[in-house]
Design a protein around this nucleic acid. Structure first.
Lengths: 173, 173
DNA sequence: TATTGTTATACTCTATAACTATA
DNA sequence: TATAGTTATAGAGTATAACAATA
């Protein structure tokens, strides 16, 4: 070690291990913070949806999906988009249909299938909820300015694309 | 409108409204991305914990809390930290105690209360799980480099501090 | 009286698997 | 046979409220 100068070897095994451990801790810290932040916001939104509109997050989500697809979505598509299995979609759709907020329209090409659509009443009810909901979200994220928000959106995209690549679950769109 | 040049008035109400709407949409986009990313990771971790260690996220969390507090935590403290109500803590603690992973130590000052601690077996089991868990997390976040991770950690802190300020729920620490 | 923790209960959300009816 | 959706069921995970023991 006599002639060695201050420069560390690039492949020094101890450094590599140290860096790996640091990375692991940093990832864990990031995950714990992300999880707890998300849970706090989710609980807040869930409570507000219940007390203000007597609805739940999955019901709101399903209506949001239909709002984005005015031609309607089939049960199977809703299942994929909401990341839950088919049986659950049937249950939520049943509720919303009974309340007159969505309707099942039989597909003429395939008589096994339905298109689920918002009814006019459902669209109206959703619009009201959605604008209040959007204001809540803006309020809860008011700690970030526009620049920081777009930073975070792109960082999250990197995480997510990595995830779906690993899982090979991104079949379409 | 004849004499008006290309410069918009700084206080133009339309611009203000436009900016507000844009901010709302951006916040909503951020939230939807954050939520779906978190759900995907959470599901992945939940499945792996079940198949590799036959345990659940709340059980893992409770043990993680105790690992960080070797002197033990009271039921009420666990409840606050895990953001769930007391009855649930009793249930999870019962399970883990039966399996010999945690123990209830009666408090000598206050005989209503317990300190819950990891048993030696529990500590050993947790260490094994925790290191594998940490590697999973590092893997799932490998789409970000160290710089991006610390950026995201600080962005999340801003969101979270804003949240707890609004809710006045940050009583200690 | 107030607090610590437990019990009992119910509800939401979820997955799985067997099923019906079409394709 | 395969697919779209339904039904039935079970199991997490959660909150609420009444309760016992102790402060």
């Amino acid at each position: 070690m006599s002639e060695r100068d201050a420069t560390t070897y690039p492949t020094d095994p101890i450094d590599l291990e140290t860096r790996l451990t640091q990375d692991h801790h940093q990832s864990l810290k990031l995950w714990l913070r992300m999880l707890s932040t998300t849970v706090m916001i989710e609980n807040e939104i869930r409570n507000r949806l219940r007390s203000e509109f007597d609805t739940t997050l999955p019901r709101f989500d399903l209506m949001a999906q239909l709002e984005r697809h005015p031609d309607g979505l089939r049960m199977g598509e809703l299942s994929k988009r909401m990341m839950v299995t088919g049986g659950n979609i049937t249950g939520i759709t049943d509720q919303l249909e009974q309340e007159g907020l969505v309707m099942r329209v039989t597909d003429k090409q395939d008589r096994r299938a339905y298109s689920v659509k918002l009814t006019p009443a459902g669209r109206k009810a959703f619009k009201t909820m959605a604008s209040v909901h959007e204001a809540w979200i803006a309020e809860l994220f008011s700690g970030l300015d526009a620049e920081q928000k777009s930073q975070m959106i792109s960082l999250l995209s990197s995480v997510k694309s990595d995830l779906s690549a690993g899982n090979k679950q991104n079949e379409k769109e």
